[in-house]
Amino acid sequence: MVCESGSVRFDVQVEVRLREGVADPQGQTIERSLPHLGFKGVEGVRVGKSIRFTVEAPDEAAARAEVDDMCARFLTNPVIEDAEVTLR
């Protein structure tokens, strides 16, 4: 969506995930529970969170840079989490 100012409004989805190698007790609990419901063969369950918002920026690169900065400073804890950012 192009705004009056000439900049563009992007739909942003930030998927926050635990870093590889960081234990995920929620994922492990879900994985242990699924066989009890008859779902066999499920492995590698990882639980994250999804954060959605819109952001206005001159172009996609600028929007991505801004969202990356948000992720590094606030939306994730870099000690244990990373994020996958999707812009539309």
């Binding site: 960081v22 234990a23 007790p25 804890n77 000690v79």
Partner: peptide, 17 residues
């Protein structure tokens, strides 16, 4: 204090949830 960077590391959900 860990989030503020005054101490290193992070506190995760307990093992066993």
């Amino acid at each position: 204090l860990t989030e503020a960077g005054l101490l290193p590391g992070a506190l995760q959900k307990n093992r066993g949830l």
